[in-house]
Design a binder for these strands. Sequence first.
DNA 1: ATGTCCTATAATCATATTATTATCTTGAGC
DNA 2: GCTCAAGATAATAATATGATTATAGGACAT
Lengths: 113, 113
Amino acid sequence: MTTEEIGAQFKALGDVTRLRILALLSLREYCNCELVAIFGISQPAISRHMARLKEARLIQEKRHGQWIFYSLTRDPFRPGQGLGETLARIREADPVVTQAASESPNCTVPAPS
Amino acid sequence: MTTEEIGAQFKALGDVTRLRILALLSLREYCNCELVAIFGISQPAISRHMARLKEARLIQEKRHGQWIFYSLTRDPFRPGQGLGETLARIREADPVVTQAASESPNCTVPAPS
DNA sequence: ATGTCCTATAATCATATTATTATCTTGAGC
DNA sequence: GCTCAAGATAATAATATGATTATAGGACAT
């Protein structure tokens, strides 16, 4: 997973409505129409939020007739998948970070205690 | 921590430059001027990124003469602080979520398997 | 096939975000 | 005091985001 993809995932999490949707999906599956009623915003607005969550691989869908039920994907919600681990992955894989980390301080610094 | 604050924290993480800054700060302290050189963007741009990270309580600063060194705060980077735990907190504390979760499905649904 | 219900997409608008350049503030040192 | 350097803030411009209304597609019923 590239740093850009990680950033996109965090961006998808950076909205109150989407966070609430995910919190609900951690309890049971929900269909689009229920979420419209709960949040009091338009159906296309919910649809776009779900599309963004799906793009970020945070949710998956399952058709059931004309309804679509959404549920969490397991991957990003595993224990031990915290911020620290994410930064470690960036540290190892990101070209800008690895390059910068390999160089010594280039600022006339008085020894950072 | 409110859902809004959690969302603001994820929003602060939803930018590639800020993710890279945090990854570097997980190795050692950095000062503003170093980051300007590393990322090749203007000094005010870096300064604003640092302000956003500080607002989100992801970093803290320490003056050292005329330099300011930034470092990670410990709280959000603790192990066991993953997405799942965050959703659990929202589930328990967010008024919209708790209200919605207490109600039964209000959509004529064919029994979500 | 026609109509209806649920969801997705398109066009649009208001606001937020990220960058720029210019300016201000603050601390170090003479 | 004055000057210089590091960083913060202000004003501004380009792009992204989140909402709306209007429209299109898909599944089920009659």
